[in-house]
């Protein structure tokens, strides 16, 4: 079976399917000038998944909409498969597919009709459309739902329909997914993740935005963190975690049920280690080296005192919270 998106698209010799340089977007309004994106540089290579993380209003969707050709940038350049999106949007759009945030497929069309129509609009020929639709239905697990109207499908299946639509172009080299699993139940989310992950082998570059840190950890080869319209960090999950000055975290729960002696013990630890997050009756302490015997001993003391405490290596979430501010996150 021929892999999707492998037929006609040009891929620049350096393998990059998206090259963004100095991308800025400013709005002028009655309340003054608002900078939504500020000089962002970002690349996505063929077969690579890049996750864009950031709090609400950080500029993720604005960035994605500019790359998708829905919004004109104020400054900077965007190249999709080597084609300038600002100057030649219609040509550049032949090489990308988008699933906008909270997008819903048409409720009055069936799954198969979605694929048939959108594939044709994206350049699939009349002669190849039947085979393409069959292949997409099989690969996205939608074959048994082909004749159902979209309004009869669950949220997870609707996401699959949109993914199948996004994959339907013969020249797709770049896939833009704006919060692809928001509003989808955990089971549906994992099935969408598996589908996205499988696209890696097809040499399609994927840029996705998400609020779910675990989604970025599961899927992304590289993560870019955006805050206040600026790119504040970028790299692999390991590289981003390594930017933190501490390697572990001690999470203490049940702070409002501590015995007096446990309260003293926790107080000592709070004065020794920096508290990174405190929410409700739980807190998180930054541990520079979680493998030191002294730290393990402290954890044992806490457990002996009946305190619910766990020691774990730093996660992407810790790095994210350190970069965008702890107020943006919550303890899981």
């Amino acid at each position: 079976m021929e892999p999707l998106g492998s037929r006609t698209a040009p891929v620049p010799t350096d393998g990059r399917v998206l090259t963004v340089r100095g991308l800025s977007k400013t709005y002028s309004g009655r309340t003054g000038r608002k900078v939504a994106n500020d000089s962002i540089d970002l690349d996505v290579s063929a077969g690579e998944i890049v996750a864009l993380l950031g709090p609400n209003g950080a500029g993720k969707t604005t960035f994605l909409r500019q790359v998708a050709g829905q919004l004109l940038p104020t400054a900077g350049s965007i190249e999709v498969a080597g084609v300038d999106m600002v100057r030649s949007p219609r040509r550049a759009k032949e090489f990308l597919s988008v699933i906008p945030q909270e997008c819903e497929p048409r409720s009055d069309l069936t799954t198969e009709e979605h694929l048939r129509y959108f594939a044709r609009l994206k350049g699939e020929t009349r002669g190849s459309i039947a085979a393409t639709v069959e292949r997409l239905l099989t690969e996205t697990g939608l074959a048994e739902h082909r004749g159902k109207l979209v309004r009869e499908l669950s949220g997870g299946l609707r996401r699959r329909v949109l993914l199948a639509v996004a994959l339907s172009g013969p020249s797709t080299r770049l896939l833009l997914l704006d919060e692809p699993t928001t509003g989808v139940d955990p089971e549906g989310r994992r099935s969408v993740w598996r589908l996205i992950d499988a696209l890696r082998a097809r040499r399609i570059g994927i840029l996705l935005t998400t609020h779910y840190i675990e989604e970025a950890e599961y899927l992304a080869d590289r993560v870019a963190i955006i805050n206040g319209g600026r790119l504040v960090a970028g790299g692999t999950v390991e590289e981003i975690r390594a930017t933190l000055p501490f390697r572990g975290r001690l999470e203490i729960r049940g702070l409002d049920h501590l015995t007096p002696s446990a309260r003293v013990l926790v107080g000592e630890l709070e004065s020794k280690y920096r508290v990174s997050v405190r929410l409700g009756n739980a807190e998180r302490l930054e541990i520079v080296d979680p493998f030191r015997p002294e730290v393990v001993q402290e954890l044992a003391h806490l457990t002996t005192e009946g305190v619910r405490a766990t020691l774990s290596p730093v996660s992407l979430e810790d790095a994210y919270l350190a970069m965008v501010g702890a107020e943006a996150g919550e303890l899981p």
Partner: peptide
Amino acid sequence: QTKLFDLFVSLPISPAV
């Protein structure tokens, strides 16, 4: 409302289509 408009804008088609 369903954001399909954004999807159409991202297709290689003319707005006239």
